[in-house]
Design a protein around this nucleic acid. Structure first.
Lengths: 343, 343
DNA sequence: TAAGGCAGCCAAAGCGCTTTGGCTATGATT
DNA sequence: AATCATAGCCAAAGCGCTTTGGCTGCCTTA
């Protein structure tokens, strides 16, 4: 069923039917009602393609998920982020186009999206420091919004980020207050902007306590369970092992716990662990009482909000970019305790 | 840059330029080369919408991810499955449209996709027993392929599934051979087809050993870490606790391990655990030696393959549906051992 | 009573492509 | 020399919508 057929069936012109369905005022109430009912009855929905051609809007948002060819890892935050964004799109009549793409091809993908006009805007995931995509999208004139920020990009753009630095400074300080003096950091990949900020927070807290950080206690890589396990194990094997570890993701933290227990140590007593918790739906940090003490910020909420912000950029392209900095809360769970006394 | 501009610049008709770029024979080699170079130079790419309108193809595949309103959980298998499918689409010039959708609205979404012609076909995720979607899509005439199967749907359709029943029968038998006689089952939601088949395998193995299964040892719910933990904890608290547990997902298995250790027991000695491993990229089951003994089948491979199958359905709609049944391998890790002797 | 305003409808153009049905040379065939 | 393929190009229609620019008839207003 298309517009033509529907209008013929109703004995009206395509113009009138179109206007009736799209809420234009030049249609009598009676006609509008008749049209709407007929549309529903014959299950009519306008072709997205034709509508897009006519209006120049795609009513579609692109999400480009980078998968490093080296690691081949799909960051688990995307699932929940996208679920959040999707809610916003559904409410606003937008659809979501997903490209999972090798780092190297990313530029081509964005250029393609622009020239084929397949999307009205894109969400940039996983910004790196000095991320090239921001300049590119800005040059292309393709509306975008960034989940995170890119240190070193000085052009203004729309972003939503969590206060990574402050969260990790607070978490580190919390451990320092508990008396810990050797604190490990298991972080995401060096080049990721969030990892850079988190490390800065970790270092700042140490500095304010007049304590030097030890490169031996700082690791960064793709945040898998295995990475959490191996780096914790290696740290614990050192001559002067840490009494606490800060971990950038719950998944890593599961690995860290495994290492701690394998060493015959007790988490929260012999070794304290603080994690960041993105609040994945399938990986709650305990129910009533959190398992891990954690800095917490829901990535799903972030998705909802950032999608909303992008739609605003699209609706109002000349407005100055808006930015949102979310605060992570620090929830205290069972994985931390006072630093053990040296006997 | 659009076709009209490009053809004017070249002094050719739109027809010729279009044919040159799409590989039709009615164009001289010299002209074709000239057109291709000009297209590349001016970064021309045809508008997907216009092309779609003209050809009737969307060059887009829809993925509808159901999120139960009750649980609000994004199944972590989707991330890797989609990454796999995406590789296939990229190779074939297709794009991926994602809808994350409340169970209740699913029918509307499929009808919408059909009538708006926004996709050429869809992948059905997470089939339930007697899944209504299969009949619906079949009626709508929207090409589809199912990741899994739906017991009770007798119309033929294209699917790719893992041999759930056999995998769990083998895993259970492995534990029985090790002398375990009380084996717990922590399974996915009852209504999911895969859960039904896995339970059947579990039961069949018991039966072939002449052992009755105990309802007290069988749980099923959304497969979160917390669910794995809580059900294991409850089982271990029973008067006659299991000496082994089979778990439907690594994420659940992490929870199960937590419960085992919290009970002061050792995994692989006091309690054996076998899991299913979907080979998530961020959650490897150990490196050299697997942590968990597990039935293993890569969901990413499944995505690659099923996408290929769907494209075939689209290209050749009248061909009889093809089906693929993957065998899961059983990898032996450190989480299983002989049943402890009763003293 | 004539002029003007407006509510309510319509025909047709246009969005950027593909594709049908030509047309015109050129070279081969008889 | 006349006929016929054929290679190589083009104009125009059509895909399903929106939107511009009317047109008609009724109701106000002076």
């Amino acid at each position: 069923m298309n517009l033509k057929e529907l209008s013929q069936k109703l004995g009206l012109s395509q113009t009138t039917v179109s206007r009736a369905l799209n809420g234009y005022p030049e249609v009598s109430a009676a006609t509008r009602k008749r049209v709407q009912e007929a549309a529903k009855a014959s299950n009519y929905r306008p072709s997205t393609r034709a509508k897009g051609l006519a209006t120049g809007k795609a009513l579609t948002i692109g999400h480009v998920i980078p998968v490093s060819s080296k690691h081949e890892i799909v960051n688990p935050v995307f699932g929940d982020f996208i679920a959040g964004a999707s809610e916003t799109y559904a409410r606003n009549g937008y659809e979501m186009l997903l490209s999972i793409v090798d780092d190297a091809q990313e530029e081509q993908i964005y250029r393609g999206m622009k020239s084929r006009q397949s999307v009205d805007g894109v969400i940039v995931h996983g910004p790196k420091m000095n991320d090239l995509r921001i300049g590119l999208l800005s040059d292309l004139g393709l509306p975008f919004a960034v989940h995170g920020r890119a240190s070193g990009c000085d052009i203004p753009y729309t972003w939503l980020d969590m206060n990574n630095r402050q969260a990790f400074e607070r978490a580190t300080r919390y451990l320092l207050e508990l008396g810990h003096r050797r604190i490990g950091l298991i972080n995401g990949l060096e080049e990721m902007d969030f990892a850079y900020r988190r490390r800065n927070g970790y270092i700042a807290a140490h500095r304010s306590y007049g304590i030097a950080t030890d490169p031996q206690l700082m690791r960064s890589d793709e945040m898998t369970e295995a990475f959490g396990y191996e780096s914790s194990r290696d740290m614990l094997r050192q001559a002067n092992p840490p009494t606490a570890i800060i971990v950038s993701s719950l998944i890593c933290a599961l690995g860290a716990r495994r290492a701690v227990e394998e060493h015959g140590l007790t988490m929260g007593k012999d070794v304290s662990i603080v994690s960041h918790d993105d609040v994945f739906s399938y990986l709650q940090n305990g129910n009533a009482t959190p398992i891990f003490t954690a800095t917490r910020s829901s990535v799903r909420d972030a998705g909802r909000q950032l999608a909303e912000m992008l739609l605003n950029v699209i609706r109002n392209p000349t407005a100055p970019p808006r930015t949102v900095l979310l605060d992570a809360e620090l929830v205290i769970g069972g994985s931390t305790g006072p630093a053990p006394r040296k006997d």
